[in-house]
Design a protein around this nucleic acid. Structure first.
Lengths: 109, 109
DNA sequence: TCAATCCGGAACAGACTGTTCCCATGGAGA
DNA sequence: TCTCCATGGGAACAGTCTGTTCCGGATTGA
């Protein structure tokens, strides 16, 4: 996961801070954080989450995860339509829609 | 990271497959994957990424990372649930779900 | 010159992981 | 009913990896 270390360095530059300062923001020991920056060691999942929050980024970005939705354009187009509709719904309406959707998925067995 | 293990089990249910089948899709040994499912052990970052791809979800979702900082978090959480469900749907099923959602919005007027 | 900050390397004890057995359960088919 | 196979849990072990601690060099500002 060299990309992870690269993203940590990249983010520090974006924020205009040193890696040591980034470590403090995340709440990690400088040496420990330095290991992540150098790419020689990897954090556990909880630490990954904390780093994401501390630096204001997402795990997806830190891991360079390309959203699989980019592959199927028809699906993404439909999802976009749903998201737009969801913004015009009440919370109860959206909740019902989600429950229905999840029920459809379960029934696919 | 109990939530991570929970999400693995949750996703297997969504896809209607066993954990062993999920392990095969990801390309991991069943025993090893079972450790992740039980929450007793955690994968490294590269494996996390592979699991995300194999199961058609995102690291953000597997880690329960709240991306909502702008709008209503309840709404975005529901939308995320829908998006994940949509990935397990056929195109026809998703299309119907969207049509229904848009119909709900129209009825609000 | 001195102090402070940042960053890299080395090393060690401890924790964690990946893997391998063993076994219990439950469903499918003969 | 019996057998086979898939699933999944538990235990254990060797090896790897991590977190932490020292040390030193480089840079900056007072």
């Amino acid at each position: 996961m060299e990309i992870f270390a690269k993203r940590l360095r990249e983010r520090a530059v974006q924020l205009g801070i040193s890696n040591a300062e980034a470590a403090r923001r995340v709440g990690l020991d400088e040496r420990r954080y330095a290991h992540y920056v150098s790419g020689r060691r990897q954090p556990d999942l909880m630490t990954l989450k904390n780093i994401s929050e501390g630096l204001g980024v997402t795990p997806n970005w830190l891991l360079d995860f390309a959203t699989a939705t980019d592959q199927d354009r028809r699906m993404t187009a439909l999802i976009d339509r749903f998201v737009n509709s969801a913004k015009a719904m009440t919370h109860e309406q959206l909740e019902l829609a989600v429950i229905q959707a999840e029920a459809v998925v379960v029934s696919n067995r």
